[in-house]
Computed example of a mutant assay.
Amino acid sequence: MLLRLKSLAKKLKSQLYTLYFAYKHPQSPLLAKIFTGCVVAYAFSPIDLIPDFIPVLGYLDDLIIVPLGITIALKLIPESILDESRFKAQERMSEPKPKNWVTGTIFILIWIVLSILVSRYLYIKFF
């Protein structure tokens, strides 16, 4: 089972790099670029929408949202661009994963705003 999980993780990483290069390809359709850019930015972000320390829900984005986004993005990109991007992804697999600190900052800000709103709601309701 552990070997299967490692294989799936490697495949997911390869697909993310493929999408990363497809996003950067000048002939990718606009809708594919927008959707793929969001998927790649979220997957490479050091911050999750649902933090992993939240039981069960924390891993939903890693187990459902990211693979679903990858699947949809792969369907939006023409096969010729995907082939070229897969080749570039294989070359890049040995290098470290790029981080998207802008997206990470956005998710941190979302959590801060949500925390403030919940705190204000609880303060008003109970005090």
Rank of each mutant, 00 (worst) to 15 (best):
L16N: 12
F44C: 10
G104T: 07
I65H: 06
P51V: 06
L49N: 04
C38W: 00
F87G: 00
F87L: 12
Y42Q: 09
S80I: 10
S14V: 02
T71N: 12
F21L: 01
Y59M: 01
P26C: 06
P29I: 00
T103F: 15
L76H: 08
D61V: 11
L5G: 00
I110V: 15
F35P: 14
A22K: 09
L19M: 12
L122F: 12
F107S: 00
S7D: 15
T71A: 15
K13V: 04
L114H: 06
I72N: 04
D52V: 00
C38A: 14
F35W: 15
I81H: 10
P26D: 12
A89S: 14
A22V: 03
V113R: 10
E91C: 02
S45F: 09
Q90G: 03
E91P: 00
I47Q: 11
D48Q: 09
W111S: 04
M93V: 00
F126P: 02
E79V: 11
L8H: 10
L3I: 11
L30P: 00
R86Q: 14
R86L: 12
L117Q: 13
A43S: 14
K11I: 06
A32V: 06
Y121R: 09
G37T: 01
V56E: 07
V102N: 10
K6G: 01
T36S: 14
K75T: 08
S119N: 03
S119A: 15
L60Q: 04
I108Q: 15
D61W: 02
V66K: 13
V39E: 10
L63G: 03
P78L: 07
G104L: 13
A73C: 10
E84C: 05
I47R: 13
I106P: 03
F21E: 06
A41R: 09
F21R: 01
N100I: 05
P46T: 04
A41T: 00
L16K: 07
S115D: 09
L12N: 13
M93Y: 07
L8G: 00
E84R: 14
A89W: 04
I34F: 15
A43Q: 11
S45P: 01
S28K: 13
G69E: 05
G37P: 02
T71I: 06
I116T: 11
L114Q: 07
K33I: 05
Y42S: 08
K99A: 12
T36P: 14
T71D: 11
I72Y: 13
I112E: 05
G58R: 03
K75N: 13
K13F: 08
K99F: 15
A22M: 04
K6L: 12
I112S: 12
I77H: 09
S94W: 02
I110Y: 14
I70P: 02
D48F: 03
A9I: 05
I108P: 07
K11F: 05
I34H: 04
L57Y: 15
D52W: 06
A73K: 09
T105S: 15
Q15K: 13
F53A: 02
C38S: 11
T105Q: 14
L19C: 07
R4K: 14
K24F: 06
P46Q: 03
F44V: 08
V56K: 12
H25M: 01
D48N: 10
